[in-house]
Design a protein around this nucleic acid. Structure first.
Lengths: 142, 142
DNA sequence: CTGGCCATTGATAATGATTCTCATTATTTA
DNA sequence: TAAATAATGAGAATCATTATCAATGGCCAG
């Protein structure tokens, strides 16, 4: 994402643009998917060593609240962040090497909606993760 | 679960039966689903104030490794435990009151298997959670 | 432009869940 | 029963995350 667009995106959401926020958002957006806070922090620090850990967390929170970032949790004790994308996707996680692949099955989504409705829930989010061994790890085990 | 059965279950798995483990396992099994470690600890303490927190965690780990207990994570920062049941189920979580309901949709399970196979994964576990507002919380909001 | 106010920041302390350490105690084994 | 081994309790340590608070910065009124 180009710098100008980040500026615009922040403005549209009414977020006061500061140097830190610009750097953090831009860095995250350039890092792809499933980025941990400490991982993001270490890259941000390379660009500006003065930025603190708290600011990274605060900014992630802010971007999340404003719908620019999604937070994920694969149950390994730390949250992951990624730019929110219009296209929804679920995850396939390799429990050996940690590789994460994405997938999307509209039929599953529809079935989920149906279950929620049956149970009287107003579903606002969901989470589907498949855990297993990827092809590469299976082959290397032999 | 009766005391005698717990004794037997531990023996079958080759777990050294100690007073602490008997109390912890029995308490957990009597508490139902989605029990947090500290919640379990506080009940265990009522039965035997001498038991330490570390032992609760160690025992949960042990029971999990031996397939007697399942660990869950709903992304709220703490792990939940429950007796492992032959029947699989997924979860519907109310993000307002925390209520957890269970459900099972075999079709979804099959579709998951299919996705994993397509991607070359050997799936060993999965996790599906729907988040939303339960009926009661929706009504109270008005 | 310029002082001042309020939002933001950085450093660090605090928190909460979980794990580790190690001396003590219980269990098993010979 | 005695020695060897495993388990325990108390509290320290860890790890990710959040809160605190004084210092700083951006931005509007004059």
């Amino acid at each position: 994402m180009k710098t100008a667009n980040i500026e615009k995106t922040l403005h549209e959401k009414g977020i006061t643009p500061t140097m830190q926020r610009r750097i953090i958002a831009q860095t995250l957006f350039s890092m792809g998917k499933h980025v941990g806070a400490s991982e993001l922090y270490s890259i941000v620090r390379q660009k500006n060593p003065g930025i603190g850990f708290a600011t990274v967390y605060r900014t992630l929170q802010l971007l999340k609240e404003n719908g620019l970032v999604e937070q994920r949790d694969f149950g390994d004790g730390k949250k992951r962040y990624e730019r929110r994308d219009e296209t929804h996707h679920d995850h396939l996680v390799c429990i050996n090497c940690g590789k994460v692949e994405e997938f999307d099955v509209p039929v599953i989504e529809r079935l989920q909606e149906e279950v929620a409705r049956e149970k009287g829930f107003n579903m606002v989010d969901h989470r589907l993760e498949l855990y297993g061994y990827c092809k590469k790890c299976r082959e290397e085990k032999e």
